[in-house]
C-alpha cells in the first residue's frame, strides 16, 4: 500500500512540478490550440481576400490585389465605412459622457450604492447582446412600441413616431449595450486614485468643479483611453445592432461583411471587407492609444 501511495505521490510530484515550478510547459496546449484554431484561420481569412475562389475551390495561383483595389475604388465602400466610423465614434462619446459620472459616483458612494452600481453594470454584460437589442426593438417600435404607446395614451401625439430604423435608434442601442464596457475600466482607475490629492486641492481653496477637471479627470485618463478604445472597437465591428435597429437598408462595414459571407455567399468580397474592417479597427485603436499617451504627456508638462 505504501509503495502504491509513493507511486501516486511521485506522479503528482512531477505534475505539480510541471504546473507550479514549470517554465513554458503548461501553456503549450493553449499555444497549440490557438495556433491551429486562431492564428491559422486568421491567415486563411486574410488570404481569401487576395485569391480567387471558384465554387469553394481556392485557386492559389491567382494571388492578386484585384479585390482590394476594386473595393477601395468603390465610392459606396467609403460611404458605408464613413457610417461605421461615425456611428462608432458618436456612440463611444455618449458612452463616455454617461459612464464617467457612474464610475465617479461609485468611488464616492456607500457600500449599498456601490453594489447597486455593480449589479446594474455587470448584469447587462452577462445578458446576451441580442436580448438587449430586442429590448430596444420593443421600446422604440411602431404603434405598439413602449414609447409610442405611452405617448399615444397620454394624447401627446396623434400618430406613432418612427424611432426605429434610423441613426438615432442604432446609436441609442449601441450606447446602452456598450455602456458597461466603459464603466468598468473607469471604475478600476478611479477607485485606485489617491484621494489626498483632491483633499489637498480643496484645502488649497480650489472649487470642487476645478478640482474635478484639474485633478480627477487627468488622473483617470488611462481608464478613459482604455474604455474609449474598447467601446469604439466593439461599436465599430457590431453588426447585430445596425441590422436589427437600423433595418434592412442600414448598412455598416460589419453588416456588409455578414451579408457578403452569409447571404450573398461572395467569400472573396466578404474576406476583403473583413480584412479591411479588422485592419482599420486596429489602426483606430492604436491611434486612440497614441493620442491618449500624447495627451498624458502634455498634461504632465503643464502641471
Amino acid at each position: 500500500m505504501n509503495a502504491h501511495n509513493n507511486l501516486i505521490d511521485s506522479i503528482f510530484e512531477i505534475l505539480r512540478n510541471i504546473i507550479l515550478r514549470g517554465g513554458i510547459g503548461p501553456v503549450i496546449p493553449a499555444i497549440i490550440f490557438l495556433f491551429f484554431f486562431f492564428a491559422m484561420p486568421l491567415v486563411v481569412l486574410c488570404a481569401f481576400g487576395f485569391v480567387s475562389i471558384d465554387r469553394g475551390v481556392v485557386d492559389w495561383t491567382s494571388i492578386s490585389l484585384d479585390h482590394l483595389t476594386s473595393t477601395i475604388k468603390d465610392s459606396l465602400f467609403w460611404h458605408i465605412w464613413w457610417r461605421s466610423f461615425w456611428v462608432g465614434t458618436v456612440s463611444t462619446i455618449f458612452c463616455l459622457c454617461l459612464g464617467y459620472p457612474v464610475a465617479y459616483i461609485y468611488t464616492l458612494a456607500g457600500r449599498g450604492w456601490q453594489i447597486l452600481i455593480l449589479v446594474a453594470t455587470i448584469s447587462p454584460l452577462l445578458t446576451s447582446a441580442l436580448v438587449r437589442t430586442y429590448a430596444w426593438m420593443v421600446i422604440l417600435g411602431g404603434r405598439r412600441g413602449v414609447v409610442n404607446s405611452i405617448l399615444l395614451d397620454l394624447d401627446l401625439i396623434d400618430r406613432p413616431i418612427r424611432f426605429l430604423y434610423s441613426d438615432f435608434s442604432v446609436i441609442l442601442g449601441m450606447t446602452q449595450i456598450h455602456l458597461p464596457f466603459m464603466i468598468l475600466p473607469l471604475i478600476t482607475v478611479l477607485s485606485a486614485r489617491d484621494l489626498s490629492l483632491e483633499q489637498a486641492s480643496l484645502n488649497l481653496g480650489a472649487s470642487r468643479l476645478i478640482t474635478f477637471f484639474k485633478i480627477i479627470v487627468p488622473i483617470s485618463l488611462p481608464g478613459v483611453i482604455a474604455g474609449f478604445a474598447l467601446v469604439f472597437a466593439i461599436s465599430y465591428t457590431n453588426f447585430i445592432v445596425p441590422q436589427l435597429l437600423g433595418g434592412g437598408n442600414y448598412t455598416t462595414l460589419a453588416v456588409q461583411v455578414y451579408e457578403f459571407i452569409v447571404v450573398i455567399l461572395d467569400w472573396n468580397k466578404g474576406a476583403i471587407l473583413a480584412f479591411l474592417l479588422l485592419t482599420s479597427c486596429f489602426s483606430f485603436v492604436l491611434g486612440i492609444n497614441y493620442l491618449g499617451n500624447w495627451a498624458m504627456k502634455w498634461k504632465e508638462v503643464t502641471r
Binding site: L34, F37, F38, M40, P41, L42, V44, L45, F48, A233, I234, T237, N238, F239, A254, V257, Y258, I261, W267, G270, A271, A274, L277, L278, C281
Partner: peptide, 18 residues
Amino acid sequence: VAPQMLPGMVIGIALLFF
C-alpha cells in the same frame, strides 16, 4: 489573450473559412 481583441464575428468567419 489576443482573441479577445478581435470581434467575435472575425473569429467565427476565420474558422468558417478555415
